[in-house]
Amino acid sequence: MYSPTYAAPTTVDEAVGLLANASGSARVLSGGTDLIIQMRSGRLRPQTIVDIKNIAGTIGIREEADGWHVGAATPGAEIGENAGLCAAWPGVTEAVQLIGSTQVQGRASFAGNLCNASPAGDSVPGLVAAGAKAVIAGKNGKRTIPVEQVPVSPGRTSLAADEFIYEFIIPKSSGKTADAYLRFIPRTEMDIAVVGCGVCVTLDNNGVCTAAKVSLGAVAPTVLVVDAAAKALIGNKLDDATLAKLDAAAQAACNPISDKRGTIEFRTKVAGVLARRTAAIAFSRAAAR
């Protein structure tokens, strides 16, 4: 009979040790809103569960010189209540608050959403567009990588067996920079994104885009960074020609599957639609700064 062991270490070193020395498969536990469900359904049966929430720094938000430090397991509800972070990064914070329901929000975290490594994770395109980095703890100490380098394929990450995400660093936003995230779901909540889109733009005083990052979710095996879409924006105002180029670039980047949640054709077209709509929100937010 399946009976996993559970540990709740209080230090990073202890956690790394548990992960490194686990016999059989091990899994990190943050909110558990993916992991526990997958264990219940029998899809995952890790032998060791390492709950990181008792480690100082894994829950909570601090503003520091190099950016916003968000503990890996900080629940969505706490992120949504942080007025400073929400004002700085409306797209990132709205995205995490789209996850599930009030109840799910009490637990669901950035780290879990990212390391579950579903291409449809709602908080991921927003983090990617905002240029967030993941701080990873392991046997050899800590390393910092861009968020988009964490997932490698559906259900798999680039983390080694002894590693876990300790926290995220989201840069400080300055000047006319703002982000937005939109997803398409058939209903209005409690759904998995059929397409998700994060856009971050910086404008000059004339409303011309000087920097941009566009990220798409659920249209490829991992969340995409769409450089061509960013290029379509940079140097331009948000006019019809720019929107059309953005739409085309977003569609061209898609490499989706047809499944129970949407067809290839549908996902591709909606990616273009969402890119336009998300960019419009990011532009108006940036212009207002």
């Binding site: 058939p186 209903r187 209005t188 909540e189 409690m190 759904d191 998995i192 129970k260 949640r261």
Partner: peptide
């Protein structure tokens, strides 16, 4: 059956 859950068998939710 590929959608044996309320996630992919979509009954309306209140906000719909």
């Amino acid at each position: 059956l590929d959608n044996a859950s309320f996630l992919d068998y979509r009954v309306p939710v209140a906000s719909d």
